[in-house]
Nucleic acid binder design. Structure first.
Length: 352
DNA sequence: TCATATT
């Protein structure tokens, strides 16, 4: 993560110049851990507290979905002392937390070459074991993880599995070599392709969350036209249907001086979004508001010196009804540990 | 017939 400078009194004298290893990279391979199979509902604070009980933490991060803020079930911990990292592996690896058994291991150095190295395999013989599947794939490289999905009730293989290689090149070679091939003694060929990236799922996950939260917020019989409008549109979005609603939502009375920004270039409805994380960027706003309709502009307000988001931003949408829908759906939406506040921007001139 | 491992 961050460069660490060796300052140990017992270490060899360092030459002048950058206090880095000969390869120019900082060496956190002895202090940086990856933690997998965390319970879905574990928070950053709980994560830090659990691993902080071992020793001083330099930094730690529970990895979450960029858009929905949901935990992705893994995280990183960087200890100040390599001995604490070792201790964390020995004492916390295999710990059972709720339904999960967490895995604690040293993190490989992060690089582009190890990303997108995860394969989805289907059409496997039901009799093939995880070990046999690994043997089949191991000729193409170092396998980091493997799994065969099983029927929840019977425990029998579903013929579907995952293989994560150390390097993406190895995964590519495995696809070339094994996709469409019959394993020894198998009746049918297997399909080998890259597994879905979690980020591809987030659009759908967002819509699901929005639909659920919307359904909760407007719980009750759907006889009111406004409610029907919202739910119809959320369902339409989920199915990718674009259509105009014949039902007009609440009138636009009482909106004088609110939201509507004039000017040829900036015409549209300006929306104020509050409680963004310091890490938020424009893409988050595009992805949050895009599903609701035409978005012409997004802006994250950043601190000039740190370049971190100051906690708020603005989105401009062309159509009133789509902006109103976005506000109704996203106001109060939980993004990670934060609850968004979303409203039409109020004009500053009129404030006391 | 896609669960979750690279900040």
């Amino acid at each position: 993560m961050e460069s660490q400078v060796a300052g140990g009194p017992a270490g060899p004298a360092l030459p002048n110049g950058p206090l880095l290893g000969t390869n120019g990279a900082s060496d956190d391979s002895k202090t940086n851990l990856i933690v997998n199979y965390l319970p879905q509902n574990m928070t950053q604070d709980e994560f830090k507290s659990l691993f902080g009980s071992i020793g001083d933490i330099e930094s730690c991060k529970l990895v979450r979905d960029k858009i929905t803020g949901q935990s992705l079930g893994y995280g990183f911990v960087n200890y100040s002392d390599p001995n604490d990292a070792d201790k964390a592996i020995n004492t916390l690896n295999g710990l059972k937390l709720q339904t999960k058994t967490i895995k604690v291991s040293y993190a490989r150095p992060s690089s582009a070459s190890i990303r997108d190295a995860n394969l989805y395999v289907s059409g496997l013989p039901k009799t093939m074991s995880q070990k046999e599947m690994e043997q089949l794939f191991s000729q193409y490289g170092r396998i980091i993880t493997s799994r065969i999905l099983v029927d929840q009730v019977t425990g029998v293989s579903r013929g579907v599995g995952f293989i994560r290689f150390d390097k993406r090149i190895e995964a590519e070679e495995a696809i070339k070599g094994l996709n469409g091939q019959k394993p020894l003694g198998a009746a049918e060929p297997i399909t080998v392709k890259f597994a879905n990236n979690p980020s591809q799922k987030t659009g759908q996950a967002l819509l699901t969350h929005l639909y659920q939260s919307s359904a909760r917020r407007y719980a009750g019989p759907l006889h009111h036209q406004t409610q029907r409008f919202r739910l119809d549109n959320l369902l339409n979005m989920a199915y990718g249907v674009k259509r105009f609603s014949p039902i007009a939502i609440d009138g636009m009375s009482g909106l004088a001086g609110v939201g509507l920004s004039g000017g040829a270039a900036g015409a549209g409805w300006c929306i104020f979004v509050y409680n963004l994380s310091p890490e938020a960027d424009e893409s988050v706003l595009w992805q949050l508001f895009g599903p609701f309709g035409a978005v012409t502009n997004v802006k994250v307000i950043r601190d000039f010196t740190t370049n971190k988001c100051k906690g708020f931003g603005f989105v401009t949408m062309t159509n009133y009804d789509e902006a109103a829908m976005a506000i109704a759906s996203l106001n109060g939406y939980r993004l990670g540990e934060r609850v968004l506040q979303v409203s039409f921007k109020t004009s500053k001139q009129h404030k006391a």
